[in-house]
Design a binder for these strands. Sequence first.
DNA 1: GCAAAAGTGTTGCTTTTACACCCATGG
DNA 2: CCATGGGTGTAAAAGCAACACTTTTGC
Lengths: 230, 230
Amino acid sequence: MILKNKDMVRASEKLRFAVLAVDVVYFRIIDNKLSLLLGKVTTAPDFIGKWALIGGLIAPDETADDAVKRHLKVKAGIEVPYTEQLYTFSAINRDRRGRVISVAYVALANSNLQNKQKAETETKWCPIAGIPSLAYDHDEIVRVAIDRLRSKFTYTTMAQFLLPEEFTLSELQKTYEIVMGKEMDKRNFRKKILSLGIIAITKKVKIGKANRPAALYRFKKRSPLFIDIL
Amino acid sequence: MILKNKDMVRASEKLRFAVLAVDVVYFRIIDNKLSLLLGKVTTAPDFIGKWALIGGLIAPDETADDAVKRHLKVKAGIEVPYTEQLYTFSAINRDRRGRVISVAYVALANSNLQNKQKAETETKWCPIAGIPSLAYDHDEIVRVAIDRLRSKFTYTTMAQFLLPEEFTLSELQKTYEIVMGKEMDKRNFRKKILSLGIIAITKKVKIGKANRPAALYRFKKRSPLFIDIL
DNA sequence: GCAAAAGTGTTGCTTTTACACCCATGG
DNA sequence: CCATGGGTGTAAAAGCAACACTTTTGC
């Protein structure tokens, strides 16, 4: 690494003042409620025993995206769900131990996804209606994350990441209702979604319950698509 | 500053590896073209003589927002226009001098706004149609910024920050046309904007040109409002 | 009086909303 | 056979898109 430059030499002395972290607002639908993952604070001088978002430091050889994936694996025992960057929080006193700048992320996974390994951190899934007061500035991060999730639900296909690969139209509708926090009309919802051409019917049906079997659909594209949905 | 914690002690040795910077995509409408401010690279070992976004390092006692305001003042000679955080870029080799993590911002100002002081940097306003290849990852930052600007124009009142406080409906429409890159129908545009109730007519008119005087309007709220506009 | 931009309504089309009944299955 | 959720159409209302002429001013 070359450090010829005056600014960078100064930087190496004085301007590397901050530690970089990621904080992840990791959403899943649990028991028909939009929930997010909290971890217990065990290491800080402040906030011990309080709940906080999961996250951790960014390492010198990784990007913020990489750091999110790594910390999700270690602290939630989960392999790379959908993640997207939310906002960077840089208030000077957000962590009393020193200057920590946090790049916040939203992560999504479907309800069935099993944790592949044991998490190293004490965690719990908490419905968004009952989130306790969190450590650091995590209350604010959660607020921004929920706003963003609801907003993007209306113009992207990111709902797919809260669902298994194949799902019924009722499950898709339920996902929207849970995230947006309001009920929708079944016929209008189906008409709208089908007219968008973003999902394809499979030849399978979902059976096993005491009712008519439901057709299974899948999203045509795995990546989130920008399109007016609701 | 208290550093009792194991992580933070390690941090002070190894984890303060990065320098934090801000890069600003500063938009104005110049000669009826959406333009952004570029500065010439003078200090880096790479990219000397290339154009880049304006920006600079974040200082230990300021937030990212503060840093943006400071650098805009010094490098563009301008006092606090509208700014909003865009995205944080953390690729490992985005700056060859060392690890630099950049929090990118969008800034907006109206065409009339005069620079209050001399800029310390050689800068130019460049129409977005003719942007040269930029230093670092600034091409990508600009792409993301233009996407964001266009997208938010359709559902917020941020257009107000590209206009003077009082403006005619034609000027507002022109602003939309320039940013969105397409023409709009005058009657439909006026009907829509007026029906939203976000602007109020003043008692003044804009005179001096060889045509009928135009009524001047102003936005009712100074802060960006979320509302379906187009 | 003419050039230039301001200002103004109507119609057809598309989209959205509201709403109720029959169907296929498991138990 | 009954309880459960799956699946379907229509009509009224609202919103959107297309379109042309008159008004007021400066020169």
